[in-house]
């Protein structure tokens, strides 16, 4: 449903940011994009949503092209985008207004707005804060409102562009739980992150460095074959445990479950 076809992007021609990237993401996938700072991950995210335009190549969402101005509004309705900084994506002055803003943009009839906004806010547990102003909310709460504002627009894909990186562990876990819940209901999720613990649970990992894709596949082979330190990344705890135990503990995000079940069978 999402296709990158030989995409190039640069601000200055001699300093390419994205070089000849091609991939396809299918409906319902949970894809993590990882890589060192400044490798072009966020550029890819912005290209998907038509916030940046490729210098060469095409990007399609279904049969909508980001280059076609007539398709752009459709694409932004189909692709939701949660940014890194909770502060800088809160546009209006209250929680309810924030969710309504997107609904007005996509011309939802007035009568439906309140219910759609309310049910989106319920998904992220923010329905008790309808009138709260942004400076009264914590970072995690603001980020949950940002997610609700996207959910209300009923997109097919949601991009989380380092959306957990500025949150405390509690806020981060809440956003992650919402992501996985949406995914289980059929939403396509693209999650850009530095936290390797979050990567283990994905269906698929794209490793981007120096504007190219260096790996595209499942988490287990990713950690088994890629020297992640070379890409400014580190192995998550479960992988360290797996390695250091001489593979005595299976490689899975749920290492506790693995130890427990194997302990009881022995």
């Amino acid at each position: 449903m999402l296709t990158f076809d030989h995409v190039y992007f640069y601000y200055k021609k001699e300093k390419p940011i994205i070089e000849d990237i091609s991939f396809t993401i299918e409906k319902g996938e949970f894809v993590c994009i990882v890589g060192p700072n400044g490798c072009g991950k966020s550029t890819i995210a912005k290209l998907i949503d038509g916030l940046l335009m490729p210098k060469k190549g095409t990007i399609r969402i279904g049969n909508h092209h980001t280059k076609d101005p007539n398709d752009l509004m459709k694409i932004r309705q189909r692709v939701g985008f949660v940014f890194q900084n909770p502060e800088d994506q809160f546009i209006t002055t209250s929680v309810l207004d924030e969710v309504i803003f997107g609904l007005e943009n996509i011309c939802v009839p007035r009568e439906d707005m309140y219910n759609r906004a309310l049910s989106a806010l319920k998904v992220v547990n923010m329905e008790d804060y309808l009138d709260a102003m942004p400076h009264e909310l914590s970072g995690g709460q603001k980020q949950r409102v940002a997610v609700a504002a996207i959910i209300a627009m009923q997109p097919e894909i949601i991009i989380f562009d380092e959306a957990t990186s500025m949150l405390d562990p509690e806020g981060r876990n809440q956003i992650l739980a919402i992501m996985h819940q949406l995914h289980s209901e059929g939403m396509t999720i693209i999650h850009i992150t530095h936290h390797m613990e979050e990567v283990l649970q994905a269906d698929r990992i794209l490793l981007v460095a120096q504007g190219k894709i260096h790996f595209d596949g499942k988490p287990a082979p990713f950690f088994q074959t890629i020297p992640v330190e070379n890409f400014q990344l580190e192995q998550p705890f479960a992988v360290r445990l797996h390695r250091l135990s001489g593979q005595a503990v299976a490689l899975t995000a749920d290492w506790k479950g693995a130890i427990r079940s194997q302990w009881s069978t022995n």
Partner: peptide, 21 residues
């Protein structure tokens, strides 16, 4: 520290024979 805990725990995990499925 993680390394010190691994040093104590991993031998136990190995001794349990978690790898001989």
């Amino acid at each position: 520290k993680e390394a010190d805990i691994f040093a104590k725990v991993i031998p136990i995990l190995k001794a349990r024979g978690l790898d001989d499925e």
